[in-house]
Design a protein around this nucleic acid. Structure first.
Lengths: 154, 154
DNA sequence: CCGATGCTTCGGTCGATACTGAAGCCATAG
DNA sequence: CTATGGCTTCAGTATCGACCGAAGCATCGG
C-alpha cells in the first residue's frame, strides 16, 4: 500500500522544521515555512495554517509575526475580506543566509578587541592571534563570494 | 581610578562566552574557551578553572568533556600527578567554523529531497526551487573558498 | 593497604521558552 | 449599531537544558 504524496510532503515539512528548530527557529515557525514553500495555492490564511499544521491560533499568530518581521513571509490584506493571506517570499531566503554568515564573521570583533587587550604581550597573544587570523581571513573572503552570487543585484 | 588588565580580560571572556551561548554552547563552556585562549601559563587543571571561573566542579567537568570531544581543548595527563592539564588547541578552531558552514550547506539535502517530491509539478516547485538553487550555489562555492585558505594543508 | 586528592556522575533545582486556549480587540457585514 | 468572524494578546502549563553540589570512583603518595 503506497504512501500518498501529501503524506510524504508533510513528513518532509516535519524534517524541514526539525532542522531549523536546531538553529533556534520554533518548530511551528519551521512548519509554516516548509508548508508555505510547497502548498497549492500559494497563499494561506492564519486559520488555514492553524488547521493544516494542527497548531493553536496563538502559536500561528506569534510565529507568523516573527516570520513576517524576518521578511520571509508576506502578509497581504484585502478590502472587504477580514482574513489576511500569507505567502512565502522565497527571494528573501538569501537574507537568512546572509545573517547566518554575518553572525559567523562577527566573532572577529571579539577577537580583535581581545587582541587589543593583549597588546604589549605578543607571547600571551599567540593563541588568540591564531583564531583572530582565521576570522580576519573569513571576513575578507566571504563578502567576495557574495559578490559572485548569480543575480546578486537585487 | 583605572581598571586593571585582568578585570578587563574577564569582562572580555564574559562577552566571548555570551556570543557562543547564542550559538548553543553553554555559558561555562564559552568561559572556558575564552579563558584558555588568554591565560598565562597556558595550561590549567579542572580545579583551577573551577575556582577562576566560579563554576562548580561538575559543570567544569561536563563542559571540558564536551570541548575535548569537540577537539577544541586538549587534555594532558602526567605520571605522578593526579590533576590533568587542559589547554586550548587553537588550531582546531577551523573545525568549528567548518562544522558551522557544513550545517548551513546541509539544508541543501532537504531542499533536494523536497524537489524530488515535487517532480512532475514544476509550477508548484517554483518556490522551493529558488531556495534549492541558493543552497546548491552555496554548496559549490564554499568548499572552493576553503581550498584557498592559507595553510589549508593539514 | 590506606588516606588523600581530583575528576566524574547523578539527582534536584532553577530559569527560559514553546505552546495552548480563552479573553479581548478590531474590522467587516448586515 | 450590533453581530459575526478573525487575529492578537496574555496568563498558565509543560518541557528542556544548564547548573550545582554531594556522593561515588579512580588514581597516586605514603
Amino acid at each position: 500500500m503506497s504512501v500518498g504524496r501529501e503524506t510524504r510532503l508533510s513528513a518532509w515539512i516535519e524534517r524541514f522544521a526539525a532542522h531549523f528548530a536546531e538553529e533556534g527557529i520554533p518548530l511551528i515557525g519551521g512548519r509554516i515555512l516548509g508548508y508555505l514553500l510547497v502548498c497549492q495555492p500559494t497563499e494561506r490564511t492564519a486559520a488555514e495554517l492553524s488547521q493544516e499544521l494542527e497548531a493553536s491560533s496563538g502559536s500561528i499568530s506569534t510565529n507568523l509575526k516573527f516570520l513576517v518581521n524576518a521578511g520571509l513571509v508576506t502578509k497581504r490584506t484585502r478590502r472587504g475580506r477580514q482574513a489576511a493571506q500569507y505567502r512565502i517570499d522565497e527571494k528573501r531566503w538569501v537574507d537568512l543566509i546572509q545573517r547566518k554568515l554575518d553572525a559567523l564573521v562577527s566573532v572577529r570583533e571579539l577577537t580583535e578587541s581581545g587582541m587589543r587587550l593583549m597588546s604589549g604581550d605578543p607571547e600571551r597573544a599567540m593563541r588568540l592571534r591564531t583564531v583572530d587570523d582565521l576570522y580576519t581571513w573569513l571576513a575578507t573572503e566571504l563578502p567576495a563570494v557574495w559578490e559572485r552570487r548569480p543575480s546578486s543585484s537585487r
